[in-house]
């Protein structure tokens, strides 16, 4: 995995054990570097901005990032399996709207969430099936379905907002669980589940193999297309959850809302060190990527920097992360 230290072949492994050697190894690990960069960033803001280092502020960061963060987690799995899913924003919109419609019809929060999640998985599987059957790159397929799903959301609602006022439903987006905003709890729970799936299940390992080299995976008997389809279904599921949280927070569902989360979510995954070409990446990396994006926004807001500059800075960081991805792959 990317976090593994590397030693050039033909040289003896550095004698293990010593504290310095450990630090050296950590410094070589991209994730450790990212974590260090994050701490540095946080330290700068802690010094520069008055109310940065408060519990409430970090809860704010969590609340501000949860929606795109949840989507980014599933996207990480899809991307590790070599499927760059760009349709998830539209899936968010569709599932959010469907949930709001269930609420508006008086079906209650549980039914609304169930419908949204089922449809999210379904749309993810549609992506997976099209990728498998048409033997196309997931990016191409999901670019198409992005337009189809997103367009359907507009056609279905006629562009009109769908109100979703239900107290139980609203708590998903605005409530607190154990003193922590519920969206953040959901994000962390999903992160834990997906991290376990990737690290401790055969399916998770197959995602890495398929993303790394689909041809080789096929030759060792892995059904690469189905692994990808399942990974895309996971991406669809998290997009649906993100859509539900988004609508529950807003209290109203609008077509086109989810699509706006696209760049942030992809940026979080890329900053987190998941290879764009697939085959490597970690959930904890994406969490760090989410934290980096959220903290930059938050810190600059506290410092009163204009949002245009924030966009520019985030763009620079994403390009930087892509360059690192490129260098890492060239080294490999």
């Amino acid at each position: 995995m990317t976090a593994e230290p590397s030693t050039p072949i033909g040289r003896p492994e550095p004698a293990g054990g010593g504290g310095l050697a450990l630090i050296g190894r950590l410094a070589a690990a991209p994730l450790a570097r990212l974590a260090a960069a994050y701490l540095l960033l946080a330290a700068v803001f802690a010094i520069a901005a008055d109310h940065f280092l408060t519990t409430d502020n970090f809860l704010n960061i969590g609340r501000a990032t949860a929606v795109f963060g949840i989507a980014a987690l599933g996207l990480t799995v899809a991307l590790i399996a070599g499927a760059l899913d760009v349709s998830f924003g539209a899936v968010m919109s569709v599932c959010g709207i469907l949930a709001a419609e269930r609420i508006a019809a008086g079906d209650g929060a549980a039914a609304a969430v169930a419908v949204a999640l089922a449809v999210g998985v379904g749309l993810g599987l549609v992506n997976g099936l099209l990728t498998a059957v048409l033997r196309l790159d997931a990016l191409i397929v999901t670019l198409g379905t992005f337009s189809i799903f997103g367009g359907w959301a507009f056609l279905h609602t006629n562009g009109a907002p769908t109100p979703a006022s239900d107290d139980a439903f609203a708590r998903i987006g605005r409530g607190e669980t154990l003193g922590i905003p519920t969206p953040v709890v959901i994000m962390i729970a999903i992160a834990l589940v997906l991290a376990v799936v990737l690290r401790w299940t055969g399916f998770g390992q197959r995602c890495y193999l398929v993303g790394d080299n689909p041809r080789a995976a096929t030759l060792v008997g892995i059904r690469a297309a189905w692994v990808r389809a399942a990974a895309l279904a996971i991406s669809g599921l998290t997009a649906a959850i993100a859509g539900v949280v988004m609508v529950a927070n807003a209290g109203v569902a609008n077509a086109g809302e989810g699509e706006r989360q696209l760049l942030n979510a992809i940026a979080a995954v890329v900053i987190g060190g998941t290879a764009l070409a697939g085959g490597s990446g970690l959930i904890v990396g994406t969490l760090l990527g989410i934290a980096v994006l959220g903290t930059i926004d938050n810190g600059l807001n506290l410092l009163g920097v204009s949002s245009t500059w924030q966009d520019v800075l985030k763009g620079v960081i994403v390009v930087f992360a892509l360059v690192l991805d490129r260098i890492r792959r060239r080294d490999a």
Binding site: H51, T54, E257
Partner: peptide, 13 residues
């Protein structure tokens, strides 16, 4: 959502 994020940070400040 953008307004919410920024307003939250203004309140923090």
């Amino acid at each position: 959502d953008e307004s919410q994020k920024k307003a939250a940070d203004v309140l923090t400040a």
